[in-house]
Amino acid sequence: MRGAADRATRRVRRLRRESWGFAVGSALFFVGVLPAYSSWAGPVWTNATFFAGSIFFTMAGLIQLLLSGRRAPDTRMNRADRTDWWAAAIQFAGTLLFNASTGAALVAAIIEPDRVGAGWRPDAWGSIAFLVSSALAVVATKDRGELWDRDARTWHGTGLNMLGSIAFGVSAVAAFVRPATGDLVSAAMANFGTAIGAACFFVAALLARRTIEEPPRRA
């Protein structure tokens, strides 16, 4: 009887738990840089959109960290799991940095909305953390067969997240404020990099799946 029940169990692919947060967060970042949205919403709500997106990123990053080996790395862990844990930990730190920068931008928008301009753009430290995390994820993906959860890393997800991190890095450079003039290096490139990065993160989140077993449906 037990064997028959096991054979009747269905194996299905479902969106990973952390993917929901990454997908919503990415969508909010993408919407936030759209000129039509920022013009309609105004500086306060535009920056509130970025801040909300960063909160979803942080929640998703925490879930991913807790699921990546489920403990801090030690000598008992293989290299793949250890690298995967560090990739998730550094990514989580990056999301906290984005919490700080988006929160500061929101406060500035509330206090002096006329001086905020187009709103928040990726900061350097958060972007560096994402780049380092993405590089470690590439290393973990090379040995994904040794991961405790093979679905945690896939080449399409790792590649898209790397592209997204690079795009956020380009945006951070373009958002550098020139001391002499107070202008950005390139506002258009900063917005474009943020949009491309958010789109890459969004698609990667939707492609991240996990295999679960479901009991057979009763007639």
Rank of each mutant, 00 (worst) to 15 (best):
S101Q: 12
A104M: 13
A104G: 11
A104T: 14
A105C: 02
A108G: 05
A109W: 01
A109E: 08
I110D: 00
I111M: 05
D114S: 14
V116Q: 12
G117T: 01
G119Y: 07
G126T: 07
G126V: 06
S127Y: 04
F130E: 03
V132S: 01
V132M: 11
S134M: 02
A135Q: 01
L136F: 11
L136H: 00
L136D: 02
A137V: 03
V138T: 09
V139E: 11
V139Y: 03
V139S: 09
T141M: 10
R144I: 02
E146N: 09
L147Q: 04
L147F: 09
W148A: 14
T154C: 02
G157M: 09
T158E: 08
L160G: 08
L160I: 07
M162S: 15
G164S: 06
G169K: 04
A172F: 10
A172L: 08
A174E: 01
A174L: 06
A175W: 10
F176W: 14
V177T: 15
A180V: 13
G182N: 05
D183M: 05
L184E: 11
V185S: 06
S186M: 13
A187V: 13
A188H: 11
A188G: 04
F192T: 15
F192S: 13
T194K: 09
T194L: 15
A195S: 15
A195Y: 09
G197Q: 06
G197K: 12
A198S: 15
A199R: 10
C200A: 12
F201S: 09
L206H: 02
I212W: 02
E214F: 01
E214I: 14
